[in-house]
Structures are given as C-alpha cells and as structure tokens.
Design a protein around this nucleic acid. Structure first.
Length: 338
DNA sequence: TCATGGTAGTCTTGTGTCTC
DNA sequence: GAGACACAAGACTACCATGA
C-alpha cells in the first residue's frame, strides 16, 4: 500500500475530518427512488449545517411534492451562516419547517423556525435524541468516524433511515449483523466516486482526490454507499447470472480455511453452484434476499462463528485464504434457487 | 506495575478494468 | 481518452496476556 494512503489515514484520524457535505445531485439521484415513503412523515436531518445543508435544501424545496409533515435539521456547534466556520460556539441550533405558508412554494426565512439548543447539537445529546424521537425518517450524511454509533442509535429508536457511509462499513461486524438480519441494506445509487464539499483547511495528500470549483474545495471519498431500511426496487431485482461453475472449476478455487469457493467478482457468481461461495463485499449493493442467503462474512484475522456463519478449517487467520494468500473481506452466501 | 508481544479490529483511498 | 465503476491492503491502535 502506498505510504501516502496511510498518511491520509493518519491525518484523517488525527483531525477527525468528518465535515463532508453531500452534493445536491447525489441526494436527488437517491431520493427519487423513495418518493412514496415520505408522505405525512417527519424527516430529521442531523449532523449537518441546516441553513446550508443540501439535505435541508432538498426536503424544504420538495416539501409539498413529497407531502411531508415536518422537516427538522440540527447543527453541531455551528451558528454561523458560512458553511465551514470553525465550531467555536458551544451551543447549536435546530430548524423546523412545516411547509410553504405564503404560496410562493419557496422556503422563506420567515417560514423556517430557528431554535437555539442548550448543548452542542451532538447527535448523542439528550436534545438531539428528543428531536430524533419526533422523526419518522432520518436522512443525512453522518460522521464517518461515528457511523457505527450513529446506526446503533437509529436502530435503538426504531427509526427509518437513509444515510451515507463508506463502502467498507459493510465489514464492520455490527453493521454486517444488521445486513444479515435484513434490518439494513444498500440504497440504489451506490458505488463510483462521489464528491463532497470540504473546508479549505482540509489537507489531504492525494491530489487526485481533491478538486476545486469556483473556489470550493471538493474531496472524493471513493466508493460511497447509501444505507437504508426503506424498501426500494433494487432490493427485489435478481442479479443476472450467466457464468457456470461446472466446466470452469479452475476459476473458482476452494479456500484453504473454509469449505467454500472463491468468486472474485459479483458478476462471476455461477448459476449452477449450490454450495457456499465467498463474494466481494460489493455484493451487498446488489443483494436480493429472495435470490441469495447470506451466511456470514469472513473479514478479520479472528474467527467468530456467528459472524462468519460457517465452520473454520484453519488455524489463525480467519480471512479467506487461497494457497496461503488472504483475500479481502468476503461475504459468505448461498444461492436460494438451486 | 510496567514493558513487551501477539491478536483483533478499524480505517480510508488507489488502481485496474470497463464503458461510453 | 475520460470518466465511472468494482475491487482491494496493510498500517495503526486498542486490548489482553504474560513475564520481569
């Protein structure tokens, strides 16, 4: 792995670089698949600057079209209008919008209620939790470094949600458990490169991941997924399979430490193999629970039967091994239709 | 109690391939 | 050729056990 990557990692971790602001086009592309879910609902967008947030923009400008009941957004320690002001204030605000009042179909400042919070607006604060309790659906881009904690809170409060996270949160054992239990799944517009607005002071060594347009710095997060528990059409679409295992056995080696075959690409999942297969984590983006059964995931160096979902035949390294060489995390699946 | 070593778990972008 | 997409690694930290 290139050193620059790990330098970036260290910088990101040291600086807790969680100020990534989602592009409106990315929000529009995903939300268009859920229009029927929002009628009569209260939407909560926290972890974002409500007066600048594209999530607030989308829901306030589409309030009537979606038939929303109320829109609530909170902001962490930031009361200034500038998008990337330092979080110097110890208190925060939240905004409430209940729709157009003057008939111009535009969310005017006088129609948006601004309420000062006593605390810093952290999603874990009692004030934010009380706002969360009012909500039916949470839609936001939570801090990536707190993704697990954020999802845990949503599940604890039994909320519907549509949130953004890195592709590899799939490998977090807590998140994977929810995927396996059909309590969380991928959204529709996943994969590929998404650009996020970041503050000027963000110092990321990899210049190919930074661009500047009209004076605004953008950062590419690589493969970013939407995660949700709202039903969507993609979840019911079969993965088109065309390859066969029998006659091409050499393309599907058996793992050293599991009684399963390696499928190196989702597109290569065979049509005719009824046994256990290990597939890349991007499988989750295309997963149809009527087509496949998820047994588990082999990802880290330690074996946990509940996580992996099948017997371990090795000694130490629980990652799938092929002739002694470990692969990246693999989702362990079976085809239900064979 | 502290140092050391081993293990488990977490973290994020780079790069090769494909498509237009 | 450019952009989009799919897939992938190893450095680092926390934690625990062990021994001095």
């Amino acid at each position: 792995m290139a050193k620059s990557l790990n330098n970036n990692l260290k910088k990101a971790k040291a600086g807790k670089n969680d100020e990534f602001y989602t592009e409106l086009t990315d929000i529009e592309k995903e939300l268009r698949h859920y229009k029927d879910h929002f009628k009569g609902k209260t939407v909560f967008c926290n972890c974002d600057d409500p007066r600048i947030s594209n999530f607030f923009h989308y829901f306030s400008y589409n309030f009537e079209a979606l038939g929303l009941k109320k829109l609530i957004t909170t902001c962490y320690k930031n009361q200034n209008r500038d998008l990337f002001t330092e979080h110097k204030s110890e208190s925060a605000i939240y905004l409430e919008y209940t729709g157009d009042k003057n008939g111009d179909r535009i969310p005017n400042p006088e129609e948006i209620g601004i309420v000062h919070l006593k605390g810093d607006g952290d999603f874990r604060s009692p004030e934010s939790v009380e706002l969360l309790k009012q909500a039916d659906i949470v839609v936001t881009n939570p801090p990536f470094s707190l993704f697990r904690e954020y999802v845990e809170q949503l599940i604890e409060h039994d909320k519907k949600f549509l949130i953004i996270g890195n592709q590899n949160v799939i490998t977090y054992k807590e998140i994977f458990k929810l995927i396996k239990e059909n309590k969380l799944w991928a959204g529709v517009d996943n994969g590929g490169t998404k650009w996020f607005k970041v503050p000027d002071h963000y110092d990321i060594a990899t210049e190919t991941r930074i661009k500047t347009e009209n004076g605004q710095k953008y950062f590419s997060m690589g493969s970013v997924f939407w995660f949700t528990n709202l039903d969507n059409r993609k979840r019911h679409e079969d993965i088109i399979l065309y390859k066969t295992y029998y006659g091409n056995e050499s393309e599907y080696p058996t793992y050293d430490n599991y009684d399963a075959i390696e499928v190196n690409k989702v597109a290569n999942i065979p049509t005719d193999f009824k046994g256990v297969m290990g597939v890349p984590i991007t499988f989750i983006d295309k997963y149809n629970p009527n087509q496949f059964e998820i047994l588990g995931m082999a990802s880290s160096a330690g074996y946990n039967s509940e996580v992996v979902g099948m017997p371990f035949l090795g000694e130490k390294d629980a990652r799938p091994l092929i002739e002694g060489k470990n692969t990246f995390a693999r989702v362990i699946i079976k085809n239900k239709r064979i």
